[in-house]
Design a protein around this nucleic acid. Structure first.
Length: 460
DNA sequence: TTGCCTTTGAAGCGT
DNA sequence: ACGCTTCAAAGGCAA
């Protein structure tokens, strides 16, 4: 039985990760948040239903426009369904992918709904009747399987390019294709499977109502009684993918994966050459590697890759931001063994290995664009205040998802850079002056009025 | 051009 | 063990 707490074995798992759940005394607020969340879900459902109703009541000419056309993304959507079907088969215990009451309904009926036309392109009278019936069924279906729709996926992961949800995405993501001009993180256009988060992770992590494994009663911190993350050795069951799937199925952080049809980092056909066989990467890790950063940030290893064969996004050469140097990305601590002058010189050239993102940072990365789109705000400081409050309003399961991702980030980071320490980055920035400014709370700044349209989402 | 602001969490350091 | 500090992302803003 793997011990979860001993010998620093949990060096990557934060025992106090869930502290934020206990604080604040925001019970009332959380209750209202839950109500709001349900309301949002209802709104989403009704909007989708209305959309379907509009479709059914639209004129023939409109229907003609809606007539199935050869679409470039159709193939990807078909693949989506294939992937999803495959994922469905993988599920043994119901959970997220619980079998529908109408076997095959979501997969067979939906395409049919879009094609109630005769061979000559006209909508048959019987098809009209059937259309109405089907749309009634669609309402029920949407209610039951809302979270599986492209619209939902697009809403859930707004930075993903979910086929079939372009409109929603466009309205919510004002800067598709990138998140930042500092870190050239771009979005994968069509090669990121919209169900990626559901496939690369087991339903333990994502099934609604089923707490992540590290929150399950079976794994509790004996000291605090707080649910904790499992030891890395417990992770393998989370990645049921075969090695052949490496590089094909991206990571849940897929919203950060590059686009334009290229994998950010090439992956050798034979898999990774990991220096630590015991730590050989699984599919999720490999995709994690390719998730977060731009190749511009990756210094060139003499052999073109990190010693692991995996250029990690956390590496930022000082010259980078500029141009890749030929320096290898040894841990900064390794460089410090050289003579002072030489060490200093190389200090300037050595790559800057960034800290792995914590749970909140990952959450911010995902949600920032959405908040920016919904608010009139653009200033990060204000956005972060909103995100901070929204973070606290997240459900336990929602937060756990990000803690889990962050834990994987740390795990991968430590494997890629065994000698790296957060200390290595100390002093890289100019020292900040810390003066406590008077009341700068979101309430004080009136973000509620600025972001009133989503105020109920942010408790402002 | 550079640092600040603002958030949470992880990690390092000093006491 | 505890408290403080630094850094991670982000982009407008001020110096």
């Amino acid at each position: 039985m793997p011990q979860l707490n001993g010998g620093g074995g949990d060096d990557l798992g934060a025992n106090d990760e869930m502290i934020s759940f206990k604080d604040e005394g925001e019970q009332e607020e959380k209750i209202s948040e839950n109500v709001s969340a349900e309301r949002d879900l209802d709104d989403l459902k009704s909007s989708l239903v209305n959309e379907s109703e509009n479709n059914s009541s639209s004129s023939d000419s409109e229907q003609a426009e809606r007539r199935p056309q050869p679409r470039p993304d159709l193939d990807s959507y078909e693949k989506t369904r294939d992937y999803f079907s495959e994922a469905l088969r993988r599920q043994q215990d119901g959970g997220f992918f619980k079998s529908p009451h109408y076997p095959g309904y979501p997969f067979l009926m939906i395409p049919d709904l879009t094609n109630p036309y005769l061979s000559n392109g006209a909508l048959s009278p019987s098809a009209r009747t059937v259309n109405i019936v089907l749309h009634l069924h669609l309402k029920l279906f949407i209610s039951c399987y809302l979270f599986l729709t492209p619209q939902y996926l697009q809403m859930k992961w707004p930075l993903l390019d979910v086929p079939g949800a372009a409109g929603l995405k466009d309205s919510r993501s004002p800067t598709p294709g990138h998140l930042s001009n500092k870190v050239p993180v771009v979005q994968h256009a069509h090669h990121v499977h919209p169900l990626t988060p559901l496939i690369t992770y087991s339903n333990e992590h994502f099934s609604p109502g089923t707490p992540p494994s590290h929150l399950s009663p079976e794994i509790l911190d004996p000291k605090t009684g707080i649910p904790r993350t499992p030891h890395p050795s417990e992770l393998s069951p989370y990645y049921p993918l075969s090695p052949g799937a490496v590089g094909q199925i991206p990571h849940p952080l897929g919203w950060l994966v590059p686009q334009q049809g290229q994998h950010m980092y090439s992956i050798p056909p034979g898999g990774f050459r990991h220096p630590y066989p015991a730590l050989a990467m699984n599919a999720s890790m490999s995709s994690l590697v390719s998730s977060r950063f731009s190749p511009h940030m990756v210094p060139h290893h003499p052999h073109g890759l990190h010693q692991t064969g995996i250029p990690h996004p956390a590496i930022v050469s000082p010259a980078v931001k500029q141009e890749p140097n030929s320096h290898d990305n040894m841990s900064p601590s390794m460089h410090s063994r050289k003579s002072p002058g030489l060490a200093k010189k190389e200090e300037d050239k050595k790559p800057h290995i960034k800290k792995p993102l914590n749970a909140f940072m990952l959450y911010m990365k995902e949600m920032r664009a959405k908040v920016v789109a919904e608010c009139t705000l653009k200033e990060s400081a204000a956005i972060n205040q909103i995100l901070g409050r929204r973070w606290h309003s997240l459900s336990r399961e929602e937060q756990a998802k990000y803690y889990e991702l962050a834990r994987k980030e740390r795990q991968l980071h430590s494997q890629l850079y065994p000698g790296w320490s957060a200390r290595d980055n100390y002093g890289k920035r100019k020292k900040r002056k810390r003066d406590n400014k008077p009341d700068s709370t979101p309430e004080g700044k009136g973000l509620g009025s600025i972001c009133h349209s989503i105020g109920h989402l942010f408790s402002i």
